[in-house]
Design a protein around this nucleic acid. Sequence first.
DNA 1: CCCTGATTCGC
DNA 2: GCGAATCAGG
Length: 168
Amino acid sequence: MNWTDERVELLKKLWSEGLSASQIATQLGGVSRNAVIGKVHRLKLSARGRTSSAQPRAKKTPVSNGTKTTTRPTRTITATIGATALAAQFDVEPVARQMLRPTANVVIPISRKLALIELTERTCKWPNGDPLSEEFNFCGNEAGESGPYCGYHSKVAYQPVSERKRAR
DNA sequence: CCCTGATTCGC
DNA sequence: GCGAATCAGG
């Protein structure tokens, strides 16, 4: 892989939005995080506004209160991160869709869109897209200790509306 | 151990 | 210019 103008532009954009080097590397594909960091330095982009030493560690699970939520069935949920919006969509399984209770301001962690071979024991294995498509990938965010999914997906996938109510 | 960016240096 | 290896750190 070489640094085409296009890839460099995407790199600049993602870097300015605060994504980590490894996240950018997987978004670009074909390069390591070291390659990304090296390029960032050569481009002299190192500064990056605010986010200098802030580490993303485990973000607290969204689970916003379901106070007065309208019972509105959802099929896809769009996640946004950064100013320019790097969106990722998650198609919810039919069964889960019925149990899904959309809440007002759910914060969804951006999918790292990892390939199957990039998954580890502690990355979320929630599938994105058509398994037969080239685009098929996995969430890849930090998985919980008790399951194969991240905090968000484990709830979307399995938590029934009734339980969610009770859980408050 | 997981991850982060920074730096070095052979290619 | 590129990026693997390494370093320093959370």
